[in-house]
Nucleic acid binder design. Structure first.
Lengths: 347, 347
DNA sequence: CGCCTGAGTGTGAACGGTCACATGGCCAAG
DNA sequence: CTTGGCCATGTGACCGTTCACACTCAGGCG
C-alpha cells in the first residue's frame, strides 16, 4: 500500500552521471572534480588523473544547463539575424558556426523578421536569458540595428557591421563595403562608362557602406549621380528594376546591391534584347558560388563573410568571458573581374 | 577590514528578477507563481491576475537554463545538419526556425562535417546534453544518418529524410524525392529523348530517392540506364561532369541532382558550344530562387523544404513533450516547366 | 617549539526553476 | 455535528554545477 519511499524523478540507476557520481568513483569530493573540469592548478596531478579516469569510465559530460545556471551565463553563442538563407547572412553564420564548433561552444539562432518594437522586444528578451550566452547581432539591416540598440548593457554582445551611431562602446566588426563599392564603380568608370546606376538591396540605407562608396566614386570622378533604385530581396523585384533600366537608353553600367539582384537585372536586360556586357555592364556584390558559372560570368566583389563571422565569434567570446579584445584581421573585399563588364557600346 | 558579510555573487539590487521576487511582489508563494507560468488550473483567477501583474511590473522572464535543469530537458530544439548554406539544408532549417520562433521555442544548430566516428560521437554528446532539447537530424546524407544511428534512445529526436533502415521507431519525415525524380525523368522521355543521364550530388547513395526515381522511370520506359555521374557540392565539379557529358554526342537529356549542379553543367555545355535546350535538355532539382531567371530559365522540381522543416519541428516537440504524433502534411514535389527542356535535336 | 603560509581538498550555499507532499478552509454527505 | 474530500496555496527537496570559505597537513622561519 505504501508508495516506494525512494521514488525519485528519474530512475537513479540508468541516469546520466553527475559530477558527484564521478567524485564517488574517484574517491574525491565533487568540488575536486569541478576543479579538474575547469583546469584549476590547485589539484595534485595524481588526483587529476584519477578523476579523469573516472570521467572516462562513466562517460561523464558536464551539463551545459547546470553550468549556465550556476555561472549566470551559458558558455555559448546566440546569433541574431534577420535572415538565414541570403548569402551574406548565411555565409557569416557559417563562419561563426565553424569557429564556435572548433572550440566546442554551443550555438543558437534567433531571427528578427521586422524592426517593429514588439518583435524587437521579444528578440531582446530572448537573448537576455542566461542560456543565450554571448550574442552576435548581424546588423546588416534595420532589424539587426534595432535589436542592437534595444539590447540591455549587461548582455554580452557584438555587432557584425558598423553601427550607425557608435553604440555605447559595443564592439562592431565590419567589412569594408564602402571601399568595395568604390572599387567596383571605379572599374566601370575606367572602362569608359559615363556614370553607373545602382540597384540597392532593402538593407541599404543612404548612409550604408555600399551606397556611400558608390557615391564617393562618382563624385570623385565628377560625374552625374543617378537616383538609387531600391528593390526587395526577391529577384522578381530586381527583374522589375532591370526592366525599368532597360528602357533608359543612357544606362550602360549597373552596380547591383548583391549577386541575386544582378541575376534579376541581367535577365530583364536579356528579355529587353540588351546584351551584357555588349550593351550594358553589370557588377554584383558578394560573389555567390554560382556567379562564376553564369552566362556571362558575373564580375562582382568578393566579401570575406566567413572571416567576418569568425572575428565576431572571437569578439563575442571575449565579451562573454571578459577577456581582452584581440584585434580582428579581416580579408579586405576584392573585385573579381569576369565577363559581365566591358566598355560601353559607343566607346 | 571585514569584508561585507553579504557579498553575494551579483549585486542583488539590479539583478534579474526571479520567481521568488515575483512571489514576494504579488504576496504569494513561489510555487503559485510557477503554477501561473505553467497555466495550472489550480489557481484562483484573482490570484492569477495579481501574479501576472507582478510579472509585468518586474519585467520577469523565466530562466530557460533553470527550467532545463529542473525539467531534465530544455524546452527547445537543436538541429543537426551537415551544412547550413546549401539550399535544401538552409531552406529546411528556415522552416524549422520559423515554426520554433512562432511558439517561442529556442533553437540551436550543430553541424557534423563528416561521418567519422570521432566527429559523430562529439555531435551525439552535444545533443545528448539536457540543454539541447528536442533534436531534428537533417539526414539527407551519410553524416546525418550516422548521427541518427548513434543517438542514444533517450534523446528525443526525429529525422528529416527517410531512414535507410527504419530506425528503432524513430519518427522520420521525408519529401517524396523518388516520385519527383521519376516525374522529371518521364517529362524528358515524353519529349522524345532516348534516355536521361543523371549527375548526382554527394548526398545521393544508390538507394536514395532521387536516384531510385530516375532509375524507376527509365526502367519502366524500357530504355538504357546510363551510369550515374557523381560530383561534389562545388559547382566546379559539376562543370567537370558537364564537360565530360558534352563530349558524348548521344547525350541529349540530363537530370541534375540539384540546381547548382545544373548551373555548372549548363555552363560546361555552353562553353562546348552546345545549346540548352536546343542540343541538350537539363532538369534541376530544388527550385532555388534564382533558377527562374537564368538563361535559359531552369526546368526543375520544386520541393517543399519549408513544409518539411515545419513538420519536423512539430514532430520533435511531440517527441520532447511525449505527446501524440500529429500526421504531417507535406506539399508533394512538383515539376516546374521552364525553358531548359525541349525535344531532342533529331526529333 | 609554536606560528604562519600555502597547497590540496572538503563542506555549505546558491543559481532559478519544478515536483512531491503537506496544510488549511470550505462545502456536502453521512 | 462530524467527517471526508476537494480546492487553493505553501514548504521542502532536488536538478548539476560553481563560488566562498573552512579545514588539514607540511614545511620554513623566528
Amino acid at each position: 500500500m505504501v508508495v516506494s519511499p525512494n521514488s525519485q524523478r528519474a530512475p537513479r540507476s540508468a541516469a546520466i552521471p553527475s559530477i558527484r557520481d564521478v567524485a564517488a568513483a574517484a574517491g574525491v569530493s565533487y568540488q575536486t572534480v569541478s576543479r579538474v573540469l575547469n583546469d584549476s592548478p590547485r589539484v595534485r596531478s595524481e588526483t587529476r588523473t584519477a578523476v579523469l579516469g573516472a570521467i572516462e569510465r562513466l562517460g561523464f559530460r558536464p551539463s551545459r544547463a547546470a553550468r549556465a545556471l550556476s555561472l549566470g551565463r551559458a558558455r555559448g553563442i546566440t546569433v541574431v539575424t534577420s535572415n538565414t538563407v541570403l548569402y551574406g547572412y548565411a555565409a557569416t553564420l557559417q563562419g561563426i558556426e565553424e569557429a564556435a564548433r572548433a572550440e566546442g561552444m554551443a550555438m543558437g539562432i534567433r531571427v528578427v523578421e521586422s524592426a517593429e518594437p514588439a518583435e524587437v522586444k521579444q528578440t531582446v528578451d530572448y537573448v537576455s536569458d542566461a542560456s543565450a550566452g554571448g550574442v552576435v547581432v548581424i546588423a546588416f539591416d534595420p532589424m539587426g540595428t534595432a535589436v542592437l540598440e534595444a539590447l540591455p548593457e549587461h548582455v554580452p554582445a557584438v555587432a557584425a557591421a558598423e553601427p550607425a551611431a557608435p553604440d555605447r562602446g559595443r564592439v562592431a566588426i565590419a567589412l569594408d563595403e564602402r571601399r568595395a563599392a568604390a572599387d567596383a564603380t571605379e572599374h566601370l568608370l575606367a572602362l569608359g562608362h559615363r556614370t553607373v546606376h545602382h540597384v540597392a538591396t532593402p538593407s541599404e540605407g543612404r548612409s550604408s557602406g555600399r551606397q556611400a562608396g558608390w557615391r564617393d566614386a562618382l563624385e570623385r570622378a565628377g560625374v552625374e549621380v543617378p537616383e538609387v533604385l531600391s528593390c526587395g530581396w526577391d529577384i522578381g523585384s530586381a527583374y522589375a528594376a532591370g526592366q525599368w533600366l532597360s528602357t533608359q537608353a543612357r544606362t550602360t553600367a549597373i552596380l547591383c546591391g548583391n549577386d541575386d539582384i544582378a541575376q534579376g537585372v541581367r535577365r530583364a536586360l536579356y528579355d529587353a534584347g540588351k546584351d551584357v556586357p555588349g550593351d550594358v555592364s553589370i557588377v554584383g556584390f558578394d560573389d555567390i558560388p554560382g556567379s562564376a558559372y553564369w552566362t556571362p560570368a558575373l564580375t562582382t566583389v568578393r566579401m570575406d563573410f566567413a572571416g567576418l563571422g569568425q572575428a565576431c565569434y572571437r569578439a563575442a567570446v571575449a565579451e562573454l568571458t571578459g577577456q581582452a579584445q584581440p584585434v580582428p584581421v579581416l580579408v579586405p573585399p576584392s573585385l573579381v573581374l569576369r565577363e559581365s563588364t566591358a566598355p560601353p557600346p559607343s566607346a
